[in-house]
Amino acid sequence: MKGLLDLRGRQLPNPIVALAIAVMVGFALVAILAPLISPHPPNAQSLMLRLRPPGTEGYLLGTDQLGRDVLSRMIYGARISLSIGVIVMVLTAMVGVAIGLVSAYFGGWLDTIIMRIVDIWLAFPFLVLAIALVAVLGQGPDKIVLALVLSSWPGFARPVRGEVLQLREREYTLSARALGVSPFGIMFKHLLPNIMPTILVLSAIDLGYNILALASLSFLGLGMGAETATWGGMLSSGRNYVATSWWLAAFPGVAIFLVVMSSNLIGDWIRDIYDPRSPFRAARNQAAGEARAARDAAAEPNV
């Protein structure tokens, strides 16, 4: 498995992908360094400087209806978006991969039951389920994370299971079993490294969806509470001033768009590097595969 995660020598990123990676790294740095680079505290109000346009002295991207600096709020918003996006991605991957692995490895009735549950889960419109969960769980970062993980784990479980089903019958798995390696040893030492590419691709794309979903929830007022600076929340209040203060809604949207598009580009790139015929590739020529791929595509939340 040496070098599986080593991207060098496989395919260098084309300029657009390189740009996407740069954008992601840039946003990550902004998120980490927020307190250092933010020109103002995110919630510092200045009633004298309400709704100032971009370019106002000391307020590069203008101020909002309470006189808060739009740039500073966006910088702190990056923190929330990226950290929640990454946490949800990691947790979803862990839960989904574990379930998919176990389901495929043990097979039989366990597999049937788990896959039925996955079917049921995927029948929900992603955002409707997430909204319902947030509605009962309440606001706050931990609850958002829980709601998003709960509504998106099947997106990992199903493709992982499909892949493990094939690897399960390979010689190295069979010989490991013959040598008496425990089921969990086989799953985590032998199968997991081999499905890493799938997990990486799913994760990269999942990150974008998480950030988009978080923004949607915040936009709907179901996110982090009104005080916290979130891109979705800024957009939501910006909507009310769209006739007079375009910058309030315009800039946070650009940030969301850039991050989501970059993570999609990076995901597509990793997929092309590893396996152009991986199971979640949209259209396959097998009829049965088409419907399945279609359903996987449908499992992608579109918010």
Binding site: L212, S216, L235, R239, V242, A249, P252, F257, V260, V303
Partner: peptide, 10 residues
């Protein structure tokens, strides 16, 4: 990749 609510506002 476009956030639909942003597109709507724009």
């Amino acid at each position: 990749s476009l956030p639909s609510f942003w597109q709507g506002i724009m």
